[in-house]
Amino acid sequence: MPLKKIKYFAEQSWLLIISALCFGLLIAAVNASLAPRIEQNKINKLDDLMRTLLPAAEEFEVAAELQIDSAKGKKTKSTIYKAVSKTGECVGWSFNCSGAGFADKIELVVAVDKNFEKMAGFDCLSSNETPGFGDKIKEAKWRKQFDGAPAGNLTLAKTGNIEKIDSEIIAISGATVSSDAVVNILNNAMSQIKKQMAEIQN
């Protein structure tokens, strides 16, 4: 009786099992041949962004993996890269951070100088803000006011001179929430990373 059952099962499902095996092999083969390239693409993207933010750097070394508490009590991971110039000196630090934006999560790459005192700018890794409004956080024109601003303690103002570099960030008109989100993410990540890095280095 069991033999009959097994035979029935085999008759019904041999095609399914054999093709599942073949498909599995196919995917494994494709993955094996493409995986290094995919990995390289990921590294290149981050590398390119960091290089434009810190042009003096020759190489980026992973310095630490830290946990940052977001305002909502969630923990996010952040990788700190040490930017090293041709002569081997540290010219700055770069790290990624994220937080809630207007519509979805905003992920940023941030660069600071070697003492964690001045920002060297930031760029968006991913965001999904309203097109035409919050979307402008990606534009170089708005991001420029962060280039040289003091790290941490940024404040947001609705009007003012966008070209003046100081701790006062001028919000994008019509997208105060998105601007506020970016400033909050930067302040929060910066203060915590500063503290944790100081502990590590001492």
Partner: peptide, 10 residues
């Protein structure tokens, strides 16, 4: 109409 809800939760 539903877009009006965006940004409600920070």
């Amino acid at each position: 109409a539903f877009m009006g809800f965006a940004g409600m939760i920070k």
